[in-house]
Amino acid sequence: MKMFVFPGQGAQRAGMLRELAPQILEEASEVLGEDVKQLDSAEALQSTRAVQLCLLIAGVAASRRLLEQAPAPDYVAGLSIGAYPAAVVAGALGFADALRLVSLRGELMQQAYPKGYGMTAIIGLELVTVETLLAQVHSDATPVYLANINADNQVVIAGSDEAMAIVAGQARSQGAAKACRLTVSVPSHCPLLEAPARTLAEAFSDVSLKLPGLGYLSGSRARPVMSTEALRDDLAFNMCRVVDWRGTVQSAYERGVRLQIELPPGAVLTGLARRVFEQGTVIAFDGARLDTLQALLREEGSQRL
Rank of each mutant, 00 (worst) to 15 (best):
A92L: 03
L66C: 11
R221D: 14
V249I: 10
V137F: 08
G169A: 03
A203S: 15
A44G: 09
V31M: 07
L99R: 07
G301L: 10
L217I: 14
Q279F: 07
L293K: 07
L305N: 14
T129V: 15
A44T: 08
A158N: 00
R275I: 05
L67N: 05
I24V: 12
F6I: 03
R181K: 10
S218W: 10
L79N: 09
A70E: 08
T48F: 01
A151K: 01
M3D: 02
S29C: 05
A147R: 00
R223S: 12
M239K: 01
Q46C: 05
S80D: 05
E68Y: 02
H138C: 02
A201N: 06
A42D: 13
Q23V: 07
D291E: 15
A11V: 03
R223C: 12
R13Q: 14
Y75M: 07
G266S: 00
A236F: 10
A121C: 10
V207R: 02
V184W: 03
H138F: 14
Y75W: 15
G266Y: 02
V156K: 06
A197P: 11
A163C: 04
S139Y: 15
G169H: 02
C180I: 10
S80V: 05
D291A: 12
I81M: 01
A98P: 08
A83T: 11
R105K: 10
R105A: 09
V76P: 05
A121S: 14
Q38F: 12
L305K: 08
E34D: 02
V156N: 07
C240F: 04
V167I: 05
P187S: 00
V137L: 09
R246T: 02
A44D: 07
V243E: 02
M1F: 11
G266A: 01
E254N: 09
S188G: 14
Q170C: 01
Q110N: 05
L211R: 01
A273K: 08
M226G: 09
